[in-house]
Computed example of a mutant assay.
Amino acid sequence: MPQPIFSRRVMLIAAGAAFGASAVGWDLFSPGLSATAAGTYLRPCGSVPISSSWQGHKNRNPPSGEPGTDYAVITGTQIRAAANGVIVDRKDSTTTATGRYLALRTDDGNYIRYLHLQSSTVPLGARVARGQVIAYSGASGFGSESGYGPHVHVSLWIGGTPLQLGFTNSVDFENYAQPEDPVPIHQSSTYSWNAIVPVGVWTRVPVAADLYWLAHSSATVKETGDLTIYFTASGVTRGFQVRVVAETLNASGGVTNVAPQPALEIHGTIATTRNSPTYGDYSLPYSLSGPIRLFAEVRALNGGLRIQQVTVKKNYWVS
């Protein structure tokens, strides 16, 4: 299987690497961190035909007033955010050539518009994540639901809005779109741990009876993916902390290096009794190369805290 090309920043762990804080830093390993640099944008509807390219829009006579890429999809197709960012403009009428649209200001400072929508699913000002469904495709424009053939038009401006840079000064979105990842392997497990967690002591989290490993790689097999650990706890007043630890192994399976990742703190649910359940989750993208394995640890911040259930879900690729 070919190694996937990722469109997000991933946690890179290499056998034999130095794992000190000075070597990797907090930012790279922060739970849930995603990259939004240009060149990593997600196409709105996956791998679908392009009915009109950005250059095709430029070559029209007269040229398009807002050059972009037209993706040929049926009405009602899910449209996903190209990157993390904020919805900064939304139009819900079919008037003008754009029809309904959404505008996304990505975290890297760029600006993307999705035109001719059937409907939007996120409000103005909403923060959205890369891959989140934000709209459904349509054919709206010129005061009609069928001002065009069904498609989604995507326009991109680098470093500014179309009002700042000019509507005709968009760039080719396809030059900034990441090739599609192969379909990942999905894995899910739930374990009823039902254990009291010691205060102030990092305790390894089982994902099944006597099993602790979240992911692993070898000298010949790499693994890259995303994992999320869901916790159900009781007796939570102050809260508890969660972290993932990477262990590098030698050829005999012995541990040669231990690299704890930054911890995430989960607080007790507000306005509940001590025995009411508290739910928390910890997410981490990762890429393992060499003999490495990952496991999770928890540390209670108050006495009497019990982790009742642990669920692990991950999507991953091996190569």
Score class of each variant (00 low, 15 high):
Lys222His: 07
Gln132Phe: 03
Gly166Met: 04
Leu115Trp: 10
Val207Ile: 15
Gln187Asp: 15
Thr168Trp: 08
Gly147Ala: 14
Ile196Lys: 10
Pro123Glu: 07
Val236Ile: 12
Ser189Asp: 08
Ala129Asn: 07
Pro123Asp: 11
Tyr191Asn: 00
Leu165Met: 10
Leu211Phe: 14
Ile158Pro: 05
Ile158Asn: 05
Arg127Gly: 05
Asp172Val: 03
Phe167Val: 00
Val221Phe: 14
Glu174Lys: 04
Val152His: 12
Val205Trp: 11
Asn175Ile: 00
Trp213Thr: 15
Ser217Met: 08
Leu115Ala: 08
His151Thr: 05
Asp172Arg: 04
Phe142Ile: 02
Gly159Tyr: 15
Phe142Leu: 06
Asn169Thr: 00
Ser146Gly: 04
Thr121Ser: 13
Gly159Trp: 15
Gly235Arg: 08
Ser192Val: 10
Gly131Thr: 00
Gln164Lys: 06
Ser218Thr: 15
Ala126Tyr: 11
Ser192Asn: 14
Leu214Phe: 09
Arg113Phe: 06
His186Glu: 09
Leu124Ala: 04
Gly149Pro: 01
Ser189Phe: 03
Phe167Tyr: 11
Ala129Pro: 00
Gly138Ala: 06
Trp213Tyr: 15
Ala177His: 02
Ala126Lys: 03
Asn175His: 08
Leu156His: 10
Pro179Leu: 08
Gly125Leu: 07
Ile229Asp: 06
Thr224Trp: 03
Pro184Leu: 01
Ser192Leu: 10
Thr228Asp: 03
Glu180Cys: 00
Glu174Pro: 02
Leu227Thr: 05
Ala219His: 13
Thr161Ile: 11
Val201Trp: 09
Glu180Ser: 03
Val221Cys: 13
Glu223Ser: 13
Val122Glu: 07
Arg204Lys: 14
Gly235Leu: 11
Gly166Asn: 09
Phe231Gly: 02
Leu165Thr: 03
Leu156Phe: 13
Tyr111Cys: 01
Ala208Val: 03
Gly225Arg: 10
Ala139His: 01
Ser217Ala: 15
Tyr176Ala: 01
Ser119Cys: 10
Val152Thr: 12
Ser218Glu: 08
Asp181Cys: 04
Leu214Lys: 09
Tyr148Leu: 09
Pro162Tyr: 05
Glu174Gly: 03
Val122Pro: 10
Gly131Ile: 00
Asp172Lys: 02
Asp226Gly: 04
Pro162Arg: 05
Gln187Lys: 06
Pro198Asn: 04
Pro179Tyr: 08
Val152Lys: 07
Gly125Val: 05
His116Phe: 11
Leu163Gln: 14
Ala177Leu: 05
Ala195His: 14
Gly235Ser: 07
Ala135Asn: 02
Phe167Ser: 05
Leu227Phe: 15
Pro206Gln: 01
Trp193Arg: 08
Val236Tyr: 06
Gly235Ile: 11
Asn194Gln: 07
Trp213Pro: 00
Gly200Gln: 06
Val201Lys: 13
Ser140Glu: 11
Leu124His: 12
Asp181Asn: 09
Pro184Asn: 07
Leu124Gln: 07
Ser120Pro: 03
Phe173Pro: 11
Val133Gln: 09
Thr220Met: 12
Ile185Gly: 00
Ser120Leu: 01
Trp213Phe: 12
Thr224Asn: 11
Ser119Arg: 10
Ser155Thr: 14
Asp181Ile: 01
Tyr176Cys: 04
Ala135His: 02
Pro150Arg: 05
Asn175Asp: 15
Ile185Tyr: 11
Val183Trp: 09
Phe231Arg: 00
Gln132Leu: 09
